[in-house]
């Protein structure tokens, strides 16, 4: 494990904690896309099928359980919590999941490293994770006032993806045969989706004004 990978995982963990903090303590999910959260729950459920078949490390298993548990509990909070669900911007969060899920599944069925159930599911999770942030970005664009926690959540998620790219570059030069085109292309696409958000995030930070994305 290199420093980029560890920093990436910690940033990912921080993003989830920020979101849980907002939902759990402020009892609000305003500005948070349920569609994106449901896609992440599906991403982790399909990617971590190996949690029961392969043991990699205690770190790996614990982190997988955290991401699975947090993503499903966030979905539960937004859909069912008596107070939290009232703050959900249902009318703004209109992105249709299947428009992302179906193309990702078709792509995974045709473009994968091995044609086995676990491998196709794993590849599907990579493709789906790459685009899962889109409903959230669309919702941010529609939200006039993005609160700090929601902005930080998306920023941390984007930072996590960026750090994973540095991790792959590092691994490519330090580990023999570390070539994973599918992972890399999906990861780069995912990071590029944040480019626009990052630009406005840093602008608002530099000028000390509230974050707002142009419609």
């Amino acid at each position: 494990m290199n420093i980029f990978r560890l920093a990436g995982d910690m940033t990912h963990l921080a993003s989830v904690l920020v979101l849980l903090l907002k939902i759990h303590t402020i009892k609000s999910c305003a500005g948070v896309s349920l569609k994106t959260q449901e896609l992440y729950a599906l991403v982790f459920a399909t990617r971590y099928l190996d949690i029961v078949t392969d043991f990699i490390s205690v770190y790996n298993t614990v982190m997988k359980l955290i991401f699975l548990g947090s993503s499903f509990s966030i979905v539960w909070y937004i859909r069912h919590h008596r107070v939290v669900r009232r703050s959900y911007d249902k009318d703004q969060d209109t992105f249709r999941h299947y428009l992302l899920m179906i193309p990702c599944m078709l792509l995974a069925l045709f473009v994968h490293e091995k044609f086995t159930f676990k491998e196709v599911m794993w590849t599907f999770s990579l493709y789906l994770e790459a685009v899962a942030i889109l409903p959230q970005l669309v919702l941010l664009q529609r939200t006039r006032n993005i609160d700090n926690l929601t902005g930080q959540y998306v920023f941390l998620l984007g930072a996590y993806r960026g750090l994973y790219i540095f991790n792959w570059i590092y691994r490519y030069f330090t580990e023999p045969h570390f070539v994973h085109w599918i992972t890399w292309i999906a990861g780069v696409v995912q990071t590029l989706l944040y480019a626009d958000f990052f630009y406005y995030y840093f602008e608002s930070w530099k000028n000390n004004v509230r974050l707002q994305l142009p419609a």
Binding site: I56, N60, E175, H177
Partner: peptide, 10 residues
């Protein structure tokens, strides 16, 4: 590293 090395990532 074997061909599953990337699977140690999250």
């Amino acid at each position: 590293a074997d061909d599953n090395d990337v699977k140690d990532e999250l």
